[in-house]
């Protein structure tokens, strides 16, 4: 069968299956299980309506269970095993003892401190500066555009920015070209400078996430009642006082949501590190460490343990984020 035809058949079967499921399950509920007829018509209708939401929820719950809940439980179980036998927290003990894990953990904290703060700050700055100017929307689109690039694509772009060629030859990396031109010194392998190279990797994520922060914060800034700003003008506040004492406090809730959302992205950061340094030169992070354990060392136990650590770090922030987002919507 032609692949296109195959795809069409799959789509038809999937969509048809969904429709058939809803039609048939409701039909069985209304006609067979609790028919709205006879002596118990009223009671049956009520019972059918109690069950109906679950009919609609069932497919989603089933797939979420299969693809989200089960893997979490299975990973947790796997992290307690070694070579198919239960070893308690042995994997965790081994992992904590590894210097590479410590390095990953430290780097993740570094990412956690720098990236959300920088992205939110740049986003807020961009949102405020592009507000109410004629070409603000064009500027916003340009700043937002990196969001549309995959992390790997962005990494390739920035790898070229950090590229170093032998001294004396033309530098194709933007940073080295500038560096050599300004200082006259030899080009630097930026990605091999310990500690600094972490920062160079973070720049990629900041570049991507600032656009996201800007869009959300720009909308929030627009939502500030204009009168409060005018009242502040009459009260004698200058532009900085208006920004920091009137505008920012009014969008504090949104700033927190943006901050925590980026924090979650940061904790999961993997692609950028994999594509740019693969954790060499002391740039390892937890997600890439986990990937190393799983798919390079084929150590399922320690890989799972690393995964559990990442989840443990993300969960509280995620809960807080959802709680904040809900409060914002009210």
């Amino acid at each position: 069968m032609h692949p296109a035809l195959q795809a069409l058949v799959v789509v038809a079967v999937a969509v048809g299956g969904c429709i058939a499921y809803f039609l048939l399950s409701n039909l069985i509920l209304d006609k067979v299980l609790f028919p709205a007829r006879g002596a118990n018509a009223g009671r049956n209708t009520n019972r059918a309506n109690l069950i109906r939401p679950w009919l609609f929820l069932f497919p989603a719950l089933a797939f979420l269970g299969l693809y989200l809940a089960y893997p979490v439980v299975a990973t947790a179980w796997m992290s307690l095993q070694r070579d198919n036998s239960f070893v308690g927290f042995e994997n965790y003990r081994l992992m904590f003892a590894e210097p590479k894990f410590g390095e990953s953990f430290f780097n993740n904290i570094l990412w956690l401190v720098v990236v959300p703060a920088a992205s939110t700050a740049f986003g807020l700055l961009a949102a405020q500066l592009t507000d109410r100017i004629a070409w603000g929307n064009i500027a916003k689109s340009l700043i937002f555009m990196p969001m549309a690039i995959s992390f790997v694509g962005a990494s390739v772009i920035w790898k070229l920015v950090y590229e170093a060629r032998p001294a004396g030859t033309d530098q194709i990396g933007l940073l080295n070209a500038l560096y050599v031109w300004v200082t006259g010194a030899d080009p630097v392998q930026w990605l091999q400078l310990p500690l600094w190279n972490n920062l160079f990797l973070m720049v990629v994520l900041i570049w991507i996430q600032s656009g996201f922060a800007m869009v959300i914060l720009a909308a929030a800034l627009r939502g500030i009642p204009e009168e409060t700003v005018e009242a502040a003008v009459l009260d004698g506040a200058g532009p900085f006082q208006i920004f920091f004492r009137i505008k920012v406090p009014q969008i504090a809730g949104t700033i927190v949501v943006v901050w925590t959302t980026i924090t979650i992205t940061v904790l999961k950061v993997f692609d950028i590190v994999l594509a740019m340094t693969n954790g060499q030169w002391e740039t390892q992070v937890l997600a890439n460490y986990m990937y190393d354990k799983f798919f390079r060392a084929v150590d399922w136990g320690m890989g799972s343990a690393a995964a559990m650590i990442i989840m443990a770090l993300v969960t509280p922030i995620l809960v807080w984020n959802v709680w904040n987002a809900r409060r914002e919507m009210r």
């Binding site: 009642p225 009168e227 409060t228 005018e230 009242a231 502040a232 009459l234 009260d235 004698g236 506040a237 006082q241 004492r245 009137i246 406090p249 009014q250 504090a252």
Partner: peptide
């Protein structure tokens, strides 16, 4: 001059006291 707005234009994140003292603090 001082102005009273139709929508009150109070600073929502400040207490009544802070709202009233903002201009003097500035």
């Amino acid at each position: 001059i001082a102005m009273v707005f139709q929508s009150y234009a109070l600073y929502p994140h400040m207490t009544v006291r802070d709202n009233m003292s903002f201009a003097l603090k500035i």
